[in-house]
Design a protein around this nucleic acid. Structure first.
Lengths: 333, 333
DNA sequence: GCGAATTCAGACACCGCTGTCAGACGGTGA
DNA sequence: TCACCGTCTGACAGCGGTGTCTGAATTCGC
């Protein structure tokens, strides 16, 4: 049967409180005692009941990762990162997909906290910018860290990259190749990063002395279909762009598909650039020039911030990289 | 402050136990009493402590989903399916990535069960066939369901599709198009489904009276790179195949990339087929002809089996579909 | 109209740990 | 020598619910 803490105590000839001390690495346990207890624990194959620890103590050894569904690749990396850090800490991760548009979201999150008593929360974009949720978390005073938030940077701890600079870098890359008419596909309007990326695109154009043309900029939803639709529109223009920069890889894949369909060789006649460097970027052809977003590391760092529990608000900026692959080249002619 | 069950009891003018009865939908609670209690619960915004319920009762309101990392798309759909069913049941899902090759895996899983007291477990391939894990679960008598297991079908409840038939269908599709030299890329050796798919391929060839040629069959690991490597080898053959059937979409994407690199038009000169119908199948160009595997439904059904807790072992086979898209066509000439 | 079955509600122990407090012990400074 | 401190360990009371048992009120069969 399952071993309990009192079984261990009996086997080691100490009180259950002493076993508890060893379990929690508290001070004031003699070396000899500790060893006896540890031996008993392994001998009995003891795993403490999380439920009992949560109920009796002030920690639950669980944190929650809250996200809304967008790219599976992105979510996968986020989960990976948070989970890896949790594992080091001996803490469980509760993955909680939500609908950021749900009117009851704040209450759901509140219920989650009450039920599970999680020790902290990692928020992934776009839940990072859902005001009711932030207010609820604030009200309860539960520690939380946001990954790539778009608003109120100062308020809470967060990890992020410089989306504007990254988009600027990519646009500059295209400009340096010789492109002058560069199409842009905006990201999902729910995500604040979308604005940042658009801003970076415009800033780079501006610096290069290229006039901003609204017709070259199309809305998107971070998915394949919207990328394809945007490409259709851009390529139907009287003076179509020689390069298209999509705000994520999924949409860039959509752009690629449209180009292939129309027999437009990439990159010879059309350069295509993405953003994120998900696995998709290397699975399409030609492989996408894209911005490597350190997604996994962002998530890992977010979890770290939670565990380090420095009292104050802390921010960490992580570096991005421009990954030059086969989908971009000098314009024809 | 957080409301407890005794707050609710006081507010409703009943005993704690009666509130507990309402919470658990037990019998023998008067309609009027139930309403008073429910009103008090919403008024106080009461969420019961999972830790306390777990400790005192015989359920934990949690199940675990155990998987080893392979395609992010696949995992994403599996999580989605299990999670959707859990939500209906008011049960939390603990996502637990593991390394199926780890020698301590069974112990880890045992520890997970002891710590969390999960009510049941969903196993996803290839953990479905890790003998030590199965033995551990069996020993503890904890309910579990396997998704697409490869072995010991009779032993435990499972949901699956007919991988052999699906591969047979795809191969037959290619044969019917007129292909005679059909390359095949095997899946990851850890996954039992890989054998089944190879078997289906051979069976279809056999029925069509086409001799099996070992040189047309290459090993793979379910990832892009191994698909590309297999394609390189196949296309370097003195008599290269006119079609390549890869055991999943990721590898098929690798095949496509090699074809593009070599300037071999798809599907005009080479047909390419995948397996799974992940989002990737529609993100590449041309979109992949593939087998739609009802991954999300498999996961959903697996969770259902867990909750329905019919005493006996139960199996559910789900249907697959042949999705004909742009990557396959009649061979040239 | 009366005993028995059924419906309803509460008392109480306890699930397996942690927090608090108090006690024992040996070493230290005055 | 004594008071005092740091170190080590145990007793004990909960944490917030559920399972079991017991008892009262109601319905039912004949």
């Amino acid at each position: 049967m399952r071993a309990t803490i009192s079984d261990v105590a009996r086997a080691a000839g100490v009180s259950i409180k002493t076993v508890s001390r060893v379990l929690n690495k508290e001070r004031y346990v003699g070396a000899a005692t500790r060893e006896r207890v540890e031996a008993a624990m392994t001998a009995l194959n003891f795993s403490p009941s999380l439920a009992a620890r949560t109920l009796a103590g002030s920690r639950s050894f669980q944190i929650a990762l809250i996200y809304d569904n967008h790219s599976p690749f992105y979510i996968h990396q986020i989960q990976e990162g948070v989970w890896a850090r949790c594992r080091q800490e001996g803490v469980r991760m509760l993955a909680q997909p939500v609908d950021v548009a749900s009117p009851t979201l704040a209450r759901e999150v509140g219920g989650l906290i009450d039920e599970t008593r999680v020790d902290g929360i990692v928020l992934s974009s776009p839940v990072t910018d859902a005001a009711p949720v932030l207010a609820e978390l604030e009200r309860r005073g539960i520690p939380f860290v946001r990954i790539s938030p778009g608003t109120n940077h100062a308020l809470t701890s967060s990890v992020f990259m410089d989306d504007a600079q990254a988009a600027d870098d990519m646009t500059t890359h295209l400009v340096n190749l010789g492109h002058r008419r560069i199409g842009f596909v905006i990201g999902h309007p729910n995500h604040m990063a979308s604005d940042q990326r658009l801003f970076g695109y415009r800033r780079a154009l501006d610096r290069a002395g290229i006039a901003y043309e609204p017709e070259l900029v199309r809305p998107g939803l971070f998915d394949f279909a919207s990328g394809a639709a945007a490409a259709e529109a851009l390529l139907a223009l009287p003076a179509p762009p020689t390069a298209i920069f999509a705000s994520n890889d999924d949409m860039a894949a959509g752009v690629l598909a449209v180009a292939h369909d129309r027999g437009i060789p990439v990159p010879a006649r059309l350069s295509v650039a993405g953003f994120d460097d998900t696995e998709l970027a290397r699975a399409v052809w030609p492989p996408l020039t894209t911005i490597r977003q350190p997604t996994r590391d962002l998530a890992y760092t977010a979890a770290s911030l939670l565990f380090e529990k420095s009292d104050g608000v802390e921010h960490r900026r992580l570096q991005h990289d421009l990954m030059t692959r086969g989908s971009t080249a000098r314009p024809a002619g």
